[in-house]
């Protein structure tokens, strides 16, 4: 059977599990770009998310910056998903992942290998190469990828049990640039947790991804750069929850022509011929 021809219908709301870890919230939140560390912490709490992304950078102040940030994150009681942001080759990403595993004491890694500075588009060749090495080395890889099904197949074959296709380029806030391809990917991988990662600008974008059946949404800038990041975090959490409930409830199919919702039978004056009234 063609896996893409999946018929929409009601689905039971099973728990979301990443590599054996069950999370109650379907929102993953980045920790960068907030006006202050405290607002970041407050936004994470308001969102109810249980997974936050972090990174590692050169230490310049004798460890004080990193230590303070780590203390803040650890105090939130959430799962930490380190990224390899900024890496341009598989080698850089692999070494960064190894450093992140030691630093954050987790095997989870959001694997980014970036192909282009303007689009921050994933380098799918480097991504697959790095994923193959990291999966063999015991990592639990969350690859930041595109909707390309061939690359996705390779990632899954290498051992990835989560896929994170982009909605739009990182930081653009343009929403789901290619809904058709994302829908196809969902139908093609019904059993792999799929997370739309990047490009989300508004709660409606997140809801759209969830209505398609995506398992979760990962975002950062849309919350961090909001005028009120804490209330925007709440707005996203509600949209993601709504989208999930809608998906599980089985959305109606679109049609081209109008169809009355009010019953036609018994409509007053319905039996009168046009023009018969004086």
């Amino acid at each position: 059977m063609n896996r893409i021809d999946k018929v929409p219908g009601p689905t039971s709301d099973a728990d979301l599990t990443f590599y054996g870890v069950t999370v109650a919230s379907r929102m993953l939140l980045g920790t960068a770009l907030y006006p202050s560390p405290q607002l970041m912490a407050d936004a994470v709490k308001a969102s109810g998310c249980q997974v936050v992304t972090v990174s590692l950078r050169r230490e310049t102040a004798r460890g004080k910056i990193g230590a303070r940030f780590l203390e803040l994150i650890n105090g939130l009681g959430v799962h930490v998903l380190p990224n390899t942001a900024g890496c341009r080759t598989a080698k850089e990403a692999i070494t960064t992942a190894q450093m992140a595993r030691e630093l954050f004491d987790t095997s989870w890694i959001k694997l980014e290998v970036i192909a282009n500075d303007d689009t921050l588009q994933p380098d799918l060749f480097g991504l697959v190469e790095a994923a193959e090495t990291l999966n063999k080395d015991g990592f639990q890889v969350f690859p930041y990828t595109t909707e390309d099904l061939g690359a996705a197949e390779r990632l899954v074959a290498s051992g990835c049990r989560v896929l994170m296709p982009w909605g739009a380029p990182i930081g653009t806030g343009r929403g789901l640039a290619n809904p058709y391809a994302l829908k196809t990917m969902r139908n093609y991988f019904p059993d792999i947790p799929l997370v739309v990662d990047a490009g989300i600008g508004a709660p409606s974008h997140a809801a759209q991804a969830m209505e398609m059946g995506y398992d979760a949404v990962l975002l950062n800038t849309a919350v961090a750069k909001a005028a009120d990041p804490v209330s925007m975090a709440t707005a996203f959490a509600q949209a993601i929850q709504s989208g999930r409930v809608a998906y599980c409830s089985g959305l109606m199919e679109q049609r081209d022509m109008a169809a009355p919702s009010t019953p036609v039978a018994g409509t007053p004056f319905f039996d009168l011929e046009p023009g018969s009234q004086s």
Partner: peptide, 10 residues
């Protein structure tokens, strides 16, 4: 030599 520590990330 690279010496890194924890930072904010997306």
């Amino acid at each position: 030599v690279e010496i890194v520590s924890a930072r904010q990330g997306g």
